[in-house]
């Protein structure tokens, strides 16, 4: 297994994403403390993506996302303090959009699966709740009605967003759900004592097959098979093992593969979270794994990118 450590992402990685055309263009992005980094060789080498911004590009970048219709619109979004930058040329040049002052810290970006038609994306912030843009990232409006906790750490948008307008937000005190495109939120009955929730993933299509996974800061991973009404702890945790990211197979439930970063280890479940196995890394790391991306989807032999808290990206 080839597992080189990239050295050109010099500091802590907050988020990773890859082009939907990864198999062809090998393009991926890493949001880090000193800015956004871009790789065109599947994560082996990295270059600053904000080079066109000059010194202003050396800025904390906390989230990154690409458009689902990247092939045609070549759009990338990156979150910086107080704003969201967008690029229409695969991350070469950037345009800025500011969030209302005082500047909030964006913790996550999530793009509507129906972005090509609705132009909608969401920004979760640690101070001001959720912002939504319905014009491809140009203007942002706070969408917080019913969101009783404005310290939002993660977002998960339904794969059927075009039909159900559903998304979930993980917060310092639990989970909230919106069924109308973030216009209103309602509390999900997630046990408050297990929060903060750091990562969320939605598996399966609408209805009975849908499963929600929630990764917490110190209580492991939880699963709900009834739209968040009840939760079952499927992986225990402790203070040294925050679950910073969860990925699920896009073919769920026919392929019940779930992957999560749990502190400094990568864990995999082949049965929808019932049993877990530690995935051995060729060079075990002691630092926290902060993020993970599966550019070609989850599956045996498919590439994985893993962000590290002290800097660098592991490519598996």
């Amino acid at each position: 297994m080839n597992q080189p450590r990239a050295t050109v992402v010099p500091d802590g990685v907050y988020a990773l994403t890859a082009s939907p055309e990864f198999a062809r263009d090998a393009l991926c992005f890493a949001a880090a403390e000193s800015g956004l980094y871009r790789s065109t060789d599947g994560g082996l080498t990295w270059e600053p993506a904000f080079a066109s911004l000059g010194e202003a590009g050396l800025t904390l970048t906390t989230a990154v996302a690409v458009s689902p219709s990247f092939k045609s619109d070549r759009t990338v979004f990156a979150a910086v303090p107080g704003g969201v930058l967008r690029s229409y040329d695969r991350g070469q040049t950037w345009y800025s959009a500011f969030l209302p002052t005082p500047p909030p810290l964006v913790s996550a970006l999530a793009v509507s699966p129906n972005y090509a038609e609705d132009g909608t994306l969401f920004a979760a912030t640690l101070d001001d709740g959720v912002y939504r843009s319905a014009d491809r990232g140009v203007r942002w409006v706070a969408y917080n009605f019913g969101l009783l906790d404005l310290h939002v750490t993660c977002l998960a948008v339904s794969p059927d967003y075009a039909d159900d307008e559903t998304l979930f937000s993980g917060t310092e005190s639990g989970i909230f759900e919106s069924t109308n495109g973030a216009r209103a939120w309602r509390e999900v009955d997630f046990p408050m004592e297990y929060a903060p929730v750091l990562s969320l993933a939605i598996a399966g299509r609408r209805g009975e097959d849908r499963v929600i996974f929630a990764g917490t800061e110190s209580a492991g991973i939880f699963r709900s098979g009834d739209a968040g009404c009840t939760w079952q702890q499927i992986l225990s945790g402790d203070e040294s093992s925050p679950v910073n990211a969860i990925l699920v197979s896009s073919d769920y439930p026919s392929e019940r593969l779930v992957l999560a970063v749990n502190g400094s280890v990568l864990v995999i479940s082949q049965d929808g979270g019932n049993t877990w196995a530690e995935s051995p890394l060729k060079h075990p790391v002691t630092e926290m794994l902060t993020s993970v991306a599966a550019p070609a989807g989850l599956g045996a032999g498919r590439p994985l990118l893993i962000g590290l808290s002290e800097g660098g990206v592991l490519c598996i």
């Binding site: 101070d127 001001d128 009783l148 906790d149 310092e172 509390e187 408050m192």
Partner: peptide, 10 residues
Amino acid sequence: GGQGDPRVLR
């Protein structure tokens, strides 16, 4: 953007 404890608010 009140900065009270969200758990107490809930």
